[in-house]
């Protein structure tokens, strides 16, 4: 007879594991990936594959040779970082830059803090922030969707193949050149790989909520805040400001709200903390879009609110049982 195992209760274990969560996110990103392949062709596959492989491999190397700890590089978290980073890049980006960005995302954004669960900032956005500062031109050159899709050597034909993003157009004030809302919804506009199609992202987001990997609070409140604030501006002055539907469909807020704000590691733990986090990020995003120098504020809004998470967690505590007095 084998020895009995003695351990503390509970002896039952739920089915959720880190792998379950992380690969669930990867599955949820598939619709956005399909949309990016349709819009941007080979390059979308190449950029995503390079970022994914670099991230996983980089994490593996660091765990094996630097941290000398157990290898957990294949649990899916590095893969999520890689895919999300790729989805925040334009398809024409040189692949060596993708490699550099991925290494920064994993090495600086994640492993430097001690690995999974310890990083204060979303690693994919750290990587993207680094690339935006380092390669500003390549990072803001947006190939035209569909037209550029099946061209491999895109660099030599960039002039003919690029367009501004909807938000870039908006920043310049050319309201007449703005794309239709329908194009924004299905994603046939210029932009980063994974952010253009609101439809694909919403499908993925609903999958995540259905699998109980995320709750609806953060994405709904983030997008809701943006909708309300831009709506107020639009009501005040509808010639200088575009309607709020345009704002929530364009740029990275969909991808950010469903996939990057909800990153468990870098979001608050309590429900009310999450509310503050989402609303705060929404306010910052709108402020950057309407009054800032950048056309898009999604990345910065998330990174800034990431920095507030420890503070939010310290002061916003979950509601305790026994505080609701309804007797005597």
């Amino acid at each position: 007879m084998s020895k009995f195992i003695v351990s503390l209760s509970p002896h039952e274990k739920g089915k959720y594991t880190v792998e379950h969560v992380m690969w669930g996110v990867v599955i949820a990103l598939i619709p956005a990936f399909i949309s990016s392949v349709v819009n941007f062709g080979y390059r979308a596959v190449a950029v995503t594959a390079v970022a994914l492989i670099t991230c996983v491999f980089c994490e593996y190397l660091i765990q094996k040779f630097l941290m000398k700890c157990e290898i957990t590089a294949f649990d899916g978290s590095a893969a999520v970082t890689g895919i999300l980073l790729a989805f925040n890049l334009p398809s024409s980006i040189p692949l060596w830059q993708v490699v550099v960005g991925s290494i920064v995302a994993i090495a600086v954004g994640k492993m430097a803090f001690g690995g999974l669960g310890k990083n204060p900032f979303n690693p994919a956005l750290v990587g993207r922030g680094f690339m935006l500062m380092s390669f500003p031109v390549d990072m803001t050159t947006w190939p035209i969707p569909l037209k550029s899709a099946w061209e491999w050597d895109i660099a030599s034909k960039l002039d003919a193949m690029t367009s501004a993003t909807p938000l870039g157009v908006l920043k310049e004030g050319n309201f007449s050149e703005l794309p239709e809302l329908w194009d924004l919804f299905i994603g046939t506009v210029g932009g980063s790989l994974g952010e253009t199609s609101a439809l694909a992202i919403i499908i993925g987001g609903i999958y995540l909520i259905h699998r109980k990997i995320i709750t609806w609070h953060i994405p709904v409140l983030y997008l809701g805040t943006i909708f309300v604030l831009t709506g107020i501006m639009w009501l005040i002055n509808d010639t200088a400001n575009i309607n709020p539907v345009f704002h929530i469909l364009s740029g990275g807020v969909m991808l950010g709200g469903f996939f990057m704000m909800t990153d468990m590691v870098t979001s608050p733990m309590s429900l009310w903390g999450q509310v503050i986090f989402a609303v705060g990020a929404g306010v910052i995003c709108v402020a950057i879009r309407l009054f800032g120098a950048y056309p898009e504020g999604c990345m910065f809004s998330i990174l800034i609110m990431n920095a507030f998470v420890p503070l939010i967690d310290k002061y916003i505590k979950p509601k305790k049982f026994g505080t609701e007095v309804n007797y005597g």
Binding site: M264, Q274, F321, G322
Partner: peptide, 27 residues
């Protein structure tokens, strides 16, 4: 069923906070 799974880093998923019937912060 008997053996516990390998302990990993906390990924701050907040599931423990959500399921705690007393409203505590187990993590």
């Amino acid at each position: 069923e008997a053996r516990r799974k390998l302990t990993r880093n906390c990924i701050r998923c907040a599931k423990c906070v959500m399921v705690c019937p007393m409203g505590l912060e187990p993590y």
